[in-house]
Amino acid sequence: MSIIVDPVQESSFEKPDRSQLWYRRLLANQQFLLLLVTIAIFVFFAFNRHVFASAGEFGNNVTNFCTLVLLGVGETYVIATGGIDLSVGSTVSLSGVVGAIAMEHLAMHSELLVLSVGTVVCIGIGILVGVVNSALIHYARLVPFVATLVTWGAGAGMCLVLTGGAPIGQNSGAIALTVPKIWIFSYPALIIIAITFVAGLFLHLSRFGRFTFAVGSNAFAARAVGINVKRQVTSVYVLSGALAGITGMFVYMRLGSGAPTAGTGQELIAIAAVVIGGARLTGGSARLSGTVIAAWMITIVSSGLIFMNVSPNYNQVAVALLIATAATAQALRKSARQSS
């Protein structure tokens, strides 16, 4: 892995094959396969329970998808640099809790002001966690896994200290905002989907995105060509934290309160989405479209299993199987490419 492998470059490199072997290329494309599998899963559930294909259930799934997708987006950036961010789940809880406390103090003011301040506070907490993560990585010289493990634990503990274990606040106005208004989309959901779209363009088309892949592919080479590796890594963790903060605000709105366990376990689901989406955990290669499709897949699998009245323990098994399948597909694809 001595050259910078940017997926965009990768695809342009293979251009000559396109006309003859388009079907082989398509079948070798993990995002495309993922989409096929997701559609198959959807058809299976919809066939078993027709209501699964209703607009109402699509609306539910969009809401659930929105609590996961931004964490996956942030995680995709981080994993593209070869790092990992375990802190996002507790950042969701912590930002929601701190935001809820701030909003409680403003309860007398207009709903718009309250929610705007809440959003700013949530994003601020997320950025703070991101800054602490990168400080631990750069100054305490911790590997990302350990650095974010520290903030994961500290964040979860802070939530309990601040709340005493009980949810904070009761905001029916916020809950009402998460109800689908435009077909299957609520207003906050539209914002989150827009952010996801922009983040995807940014990762794959901007200089910032190219630098991100460069750092993950080979940090020495990246430094040698003049990329400020430290700044790049810091930006990526701050971005991941900020996106977790936005998710924290969204979860607050869903529940109408800041709950200390609102984001528990979400970090692993986000990482699962990135891996299923085809990213390499060692960095340098990731596809945001893959993460997004995988997040949607995980969402409908969870909902579908609830519909079929299957214990959530099987849900974990199902996600584990998806990870194993995705990772195997990736390995097979890699060996196929090397032999051709």
């Binding site: 869903r254 528990t264 376990g265």
Partner: peptide, 13 residues
Amino acid sequence: QSSPTTANTNIQN
């Protein structure tokens, strides 16, 4: 599984 978010999803479905 002790998560209010998951409880919300369950009931919503």
